[in-house]
């Protein structure tokens, strides 16, 4: 593919006349670009811009191209960009299975087929038989895996990670981190990782982009 991957073309975000972020980059499929910077440096603002939920207080220019599609002006739900936050944000009113069903693409049709795919997905992350569980009863690591799977089932073409591992303890952090990167690599997803943790950047193994204050 000519322009596979996530391309940021002259993306500049300003607030009250001050430039917060200015970046041009091309993240190849399966590649991880790590953006580092102290808090308040506009890391999360950049993610908001890419998924399309940037607040009106900001003034942004540039283009975002995903696998050759210009998604700059699109509504968030049409961009096919998945995001993971530091909190898992599993919907508390839905069961684990319903959370995954919320993510699963609508193109997968038929009750039986959807249930089967959700069961298989739970098996994939070592949570077989957890479909009816209340998400609040899961451990931190289990929640993180459900959140990752929920996003993958929506069939994203790129992955944004907003300090997604910082809430987990050391041991879980390594497990979840390698699971996320392995999934992204096997599915050929470009990954934009925002973090202030040097270990995250090292584990990602890709290029590092530093934002100043």
């Amino acid at each position: 593919m000519l322009s596979a991957g996530l391309k940021l073309e002259g993306v500049t975000i300003r607030q009250d006349g001050t430039t917060l972020v200015s970046i041009s980059d091309h993240i190849e499929p399966g590649e991880v670009l790590t953006v580092m910077g102290p808090s308040g440096s506009g890391k999360s603002t950049l993610l908001s811009y890419v998924i399309g939920t940037l607040n009106g207080d900001f003034d942004a220019s540039g283009r975002v191209i995903l696998n050759g599609r210009d998604i700059t002006g699109m509504a968030p739900e049409q961009r096919r960009v998945g995001i993971l936050f530091q909190d898992e944000l599993l919907f508390p009113h839905l069961s684990v299975g319903q959370n995954l069903a919320f993510g699963l693409r609508a193109s997968v049709q038929g009750r039986a087929e959807r249930t089967a795919q959700i069961e298989a997905a739970l098996d994939d992350i070592g949570l077989g038989g957890f479909a009816a569980r209340d998400p609040e009863t899961l451990s931190g690591g289990q929640k993180a895996r459900v959140a990752l799977m929920r996003m993958l089932l929506s069939g994203p073409e790129a992955l944004l990670l907003d300090e997604p591992f910082s809430r987990l303890d050391m041991e879980r952090r390594d497990q979840v981190r390698s699971l996320v990167f392995a999934q992204a690599r096997s599915k050929g997803l470009p990954v934009l990782l925002v973090t202030h943790d040097q270990a995250d950047a090292a584990a990602a193994g890709g290029r590092v982009y530093r934002l100043g204050v």
């Binding site: 939920t53 995001i83 936050f85 944000l89 919320f102 609508a106």
Partner: peptide, 9 residues
């Protein structure tokens, strides 16, 4: 935000 990234309007 998460719901919209998952495709909800």
């Amino acid at each position: 935000l998460v719901a919209r990234a998952l495709g909800a309007s």
